[in-house]
Write a protein that binds this DNA or RNA. Structure first.
Lengths: 270, 270
DNA sequence: GTCAGCGTAATATGAATGATACGATGATCA
DNA sequence: TGATCATCGTATCATTCATATTACGCTGAC
């Protein structure tokens, strides 16, 4: 699965041009701008290993030809990549892919690709471990410090969840996501806030992996309500505990889903 | 203090050109490349509030003129900024500064500027809160999972600290920093690893704020040793506890230093 | 004959300039 | 009020020059 990236290439005349997922060159992309499409493509190729860590990328001339973009666009995409800690360019030496430990995994683009490529179990368990550490602390801080506006946002998200309960739509996901984001924001800690994107990614992944029964929605609403009430009542310890419970459920759901997914892929391979 | 940024400007003829901290235009910068200098300058102006949140920057033509750089360099810097979540460009609408909650504070450049500009107390307390939450967890994980190479790196960093004890030089800081980084890396959790840069910044800040007496070095070595031993002996709970102690000390040192710094600035203002 | 040292050429990124395309904004007109 | 169009600023492309670093080759001494 790891090497199933979207960047295929096709011989046309003497040069090979890299194509996007729909078989169209980047030049004729859909809605996305050149830079966006190119960037996404590059991130994908790096994450998937087409461009391995510590390897040197083809030089700018080759890349512009392969992708069919101007050098300007390519270089701007490279600047973005270097801000993500994925590449480093030096004159004459070329552009090299940095080791993964330098990558900014919290960037939405990187996370998206990471989830799409399908990381290993360690990827998901790291994510859930981090959530179980951070979110209870954030909830406690929120209970201690949240102002009126922040409390409202949390409550609003919860009400949206309740309302979306019956019609099991995308609204539920959005509200759930907003609930957790609002609590982190209410914590008032900018470091915790940096993780909002990671938690967002974790939730999106779990939504995709687990097809929640609506019965489990009822259960989830109760758990979320515990968190909300504790924060409203300004009881940090209660909030922390309630959030620990909530993430505990999320963890078991996630591991179950992963086990199912793994079993499924094993069957299909035999 | 908030608006004391390095980007001064001077009238020369009909146009104003922005100068760097040494009074030299970016064009004649020292070692740094144009992009680096420009980027640093822009980040500084945004963090310090010269370009306020949600405000629209001058258009590219004006900026190129003010900074004395080409449009290429400016745009590449902008790409980097947009990767940091600090700006967003749209055709015709111009490029706007995004609200702080979107910024990637964990990026070394942003952190550097943040520390240089001198954030408020909430900035530092968030940092230390996050450390107290994350590092004990990372230490526990490291005790459980670290492989031989990772253990060696932690030990090596500790030995460097011991060696640097007498000569109270920069070596101590480097070793201390390496110690904490190595533990986080050994945790095997990529989410925790994203914090390495933040912790690095926190340590650098504390080195600058607190002029540790060498007696406190002796004390620090003992505390660090506790952590190291616990990890070596594969005792997660002990490692967690030892790290909690360590960060507790760091916290009190930091708050003391901040109080002193605040008092000092009050005196100098009267 | 081999290797150390130095100078130069080749090469890839860094930076500047000019031109064109595109899309959003806001004014104009029916 | 709503559709159309002029305008302005970013997006993209093409081309050129500058700069840094690598790599090659030359020379000379041991």
């Amino acid at each position: 699965m790891a090497n199933r990236h979207k960047g295929n290439s096709v011989k046309s005349g003497s040069m090979t041009q890299i194509l996007t997922e729909h078989g169209t060159p980047i030049a004729q992309r859909g809605k996305r701008s050149v830079r966006e499409a190119l960037l996404h493509c590059l991130v994908e190729m790096i994450v998937s290993g087409t461009f391995a860590e510590n390897s040197t990328l083809p030089n700018e001339a080759e890349l512009t030809e392969q992708f069919g973009v101007s050098r300007t666009s390519l270089r701007e995409a490279m600047q973005y990549l270097s801000a993500l800690g994925m590449v480093r360019s030096r004159t004459r030496a070329g552009t090299t892919v940095l080791p993964r430990e330098n990558w900014n995994y919290l960037d939405p683009i990187v996370l998206d690709v990471m989830l799409a490529v399908g990381g290993d179990d360690a990827f998901y368990s790291s994510l859930i471990d981090a959530r179980q550490l951070l979110e209870p602390a954030a909830a406690a801080q929120a209970a201690a410090n949240a102002n009126a506006r922040q409390l409202y946002q949390i409550s609003k998200a919860f009400e949206d969840m309740v309302e979306a309960n019956s019609r099991d739509t995308e609204d539920w996901s959005r509200a759930d996501l907003e609930f957790h984001t609002a609590i982190i924001n209410a914590s008032g800690n900018w470091v915790y806030r940096q993780f909002a994107s990671a938690i967002r990614a974790a939730l999106l992944a779990s939504f995709r992996l687990t097809n929640r029964a609506s019965q489990s929605h009822e259960q989830a609403i109760l758990t979320h309500q515990d968190v909300l009430e504790a924060i409203r009542m300004r009881r940090p310890d209660a909030a922390r505990h309630a959030m620990e419970q909530l993430i505990g459920v999320a963890r078991s759901e996630m591991t179950d889903a992963l086990r199912r997914a793994r079993k499924l892929s094993e069957i299909s391979e035999t």
